[in-house]
Design a protein around this nucleic acid. Structure first.
Lengths: 384, 384
DNA sequence: CACCCCACCCTAAACGTTTAGGAATCGCTT
DNA sequence: AAGCGATTCCTAAACGTTTAGGGTGGGGTG
């Protein structure tokens, strides 16, 4: 079964043409007659020739891989994100490499270093990161002219010009706050992940502004970014002395899951004893008891947008290099985008929508990327 | 910011040592004095040297990437699988490349060809596939001596010796069937994905055997492998003339989701009008209304096991090559493993467990890989 | 017929690393 | 003092591509 690896030279001798001609022919480049090209292609196919990517990469720089950095795979939200990224990348024939900088589910700084190193060694074309990286990492990437793109996480304070695609987290929070105020909630509890995931910043700011504006109290409770930690953190908090909150806002789905688990096991009734609102729509949300009021983040669209933007930056960069200019990637203001959100009102916040129409499968994710409506969607019987 | 890319030669002139010495020093190989090694490492660090993986790969074959093939990212189950694979791989410093052979969420045969091609071009060390590949693909991989491993999918009929790690699907189905029989269900409906995902085979066989054994009728209803298709397929089926089923068994979670959506929108009561059972435990299952009775697949463990096995095969292969033997990977019987399952009994099947203890976060996934109990877990108040 | 241009093709060098084969040095044994 | 083995290092050749720079021949133009 096993056959010796064929090189371009084998095709060369088999056709009687030079390696130059073979190479041009296979790459569809100019300077080869139609006849030669056809012959080369025929022989290559018959012999089962497969080019060696390493050798190609050595000479020119057909850097055609992009790395996606995540920390922990517990959040199903990343699936949609990846789906959007993949969809775009595979059209352009770019390989996506998923790199996890979490060990046993929690972020690890040393691993971040090693992964960045890996990235450079394999001469990736660009990086998409779902969390804010260390300044050293960014400096390293910059010194290698490697374009980076933040997705669902904003660039760090030290480098606010870096490109990013996020949900419009600030307005999303205002939207949530407004809805909570309509319910008359006065004592909000925001259960949230660490600042390493920088969406935290805008989400918190929006909620705080909303609380101030509507005269509510808000407490921010930080937990590690997974369900088990969220459950433990919330348990400790609720056991303390102090006023019981009206409503719980979960910063993302792992935290929401942890919180709901705790509430369920303690027999706390939602929304009667405590209202609950979450940040990311997901497929099962309408089927939970009670059905969950959440923001409708358009993860797949965000992923796709990030991928497109990154590819654009990479292309512009390689064009500049070809013109003999400096190789640093050029980041423009339009490379920073925010995607609007709506609030999917279900029952966990205290509303009583009649039949949950939002559970229509067509509407959730895949299909419609049309409506950019920025207001709260209310069912006809949406009494507050 | 931008600096010229450093080569090993730059380190060579900076230290006054030859490229040979530098290379050996950086790789920790023998034949270099401690003093030289230290100096090389120091200079390399100061100058910010990063080796070029492409060039390394060109000479020797430090093939240190493994591809994971999936089709569609809609099933959150893959997250756990990937998590298990990553955990193992990153310990051994192996890069995992995720390759999707679905376009817009559905399997695409042409894309499979292109992805396999890509795989060969980049000289991957091995492949883990979550679905049964085309015979041509397998032949191609074999002719390149590329080890393949099936995870959560069995090897195809043409090559039953290929290694795999799956849940014990046959016994899992028997377990389900036994439980359904205890409920007295006589008319089962099995909603299932296409045979391309080969777990279908054992799952169906187990259910059929169980039905025969307990004197029940079973209907197998095939749907494409996503929620929207499942919903549509089920709708059409239920609208036909004919007896209404007692109980619905969903072949995996996307199908379960589609089914539940349909039932909810039609007002069908679960489990009163129709019992429901699913195949993969997931984090939200205890919180759904009604809480879902599902099998407890240990996806992360399966992923980890598959990764370990593949690495073992790869290592054995490269040892054999070093000994001058043939390069074909050697597949042994012990490379085929089946992981046992238990049934998590909740309410959707018609049972009434008291408080859902299975919602403890520690138990679901991450932590305990201890119990290999193969029987049905029953709560004290588990009345049938 | 001299000239130029173009299409097609070739030879040879380059990319950044590893490695085969050998040379130099040193200390030790005879 | 010669011989030897071990240690440390070097030179040069490989790996499989792409590409710079040049060569050939044929057709059109003066």
């Amino acid at each position: 079964m096993s056959k010796r690896k064929l090189t371009i030279r084998d095709i060369s001798v088999a056709t009687g043409l030079s390696t130059f001609t073979v190479s041009r022919a296979l790459n569809g480049a100019a300077g080869v007659s139609e006849e030669s090209r056809r012959q080369v292609e025929k022989v290559a196919r018959e012999l089962g020739y497969v080019p060696n990517r390493a050798a190609q990469g050595l000479r020119g720089a057909p850097r055609d891989s992009v790395a996606v950095i995540i920390a922990g795979t517990s959040n199903a939200y990343y699936l949609d994100l990846m789906s959007g990224i993949q969809r775009t990348m595979q059209q352009k024939d770019v390989t996506v490499v998923l790199m996890d900088i979490a060990v046993n589910g929690v972020y690890d700084a040393d691993l971040e270093d090693r992964v960045i190193q890996r990235l450079l060694e394999s001469r990736m074309a660009g990086v998409i990161s779902t969390l804010t990286l260390k300044p050293e990492s960014l400096a390293l990437l910059a010194s290698w002219d490697l374009p980076i793109m933040f997705v669902d996480s904003s660039p760090p304070r030290e480098a606010p010009h870096l490109p990013s695609v996020t949900t419009d987290n600030y307005n999303a929070s205002l939207l949530v706050g407004e809805h909570l105020a309509q319910h008359g909630y006065k004592n909000w509890l925001f259960l949230v992940y660490p600042e390493r995931w920088s969406t935290r910043f805008d989400r918190e700011r929006g909620l705080r502004d909303a609380a101030r504006q509507h005269g509510a109290e808000i407490t921010v409770l930080e937990s590690e970014n997974d369900a088990a930690a969220a459950r433990a953190t919330l348990a400790t908090y609720l056991d303390r002395a102090g006023p019981w909150p009206d409503v719980l806002i979960a910063g993302n789905n792992p935290l929401l899951l942890g919180a709901l688990n705790l509430l369920r096991s303690r027999g706390t009734r939602v929304p009667d004893d405590l209202g609950v609102v979450g940040y990311d729509e997901f497929a099962w949300a309408p089927l939970i008891e009670p059905s969950l009021t959440v923001l409708n983040e358009r993860s797949e669209e965000i992923g796709g947008l990030a991928a497109e933007t990154l590819l654009e930056i990479i292309e512009e960069q390689s064009r500049a290099v070809k013109r003999g200019e400096a190789g640093a990637p050029e980041y423009l203001p339009r490379h920073q985008r925010q995607v609007p959100v709506d609030l999917l009102v279900r029952r966990s916040c205290g509303c009583h929508p009649p039949l949950d129409r939002t559970s229509d499968l067509v509407a959730s994710g895949k299909a419609s990327r049309s409506t950019t409506n920025h207001r709260t969607k209310k069912g006809p019987a949406d009494r507050v």
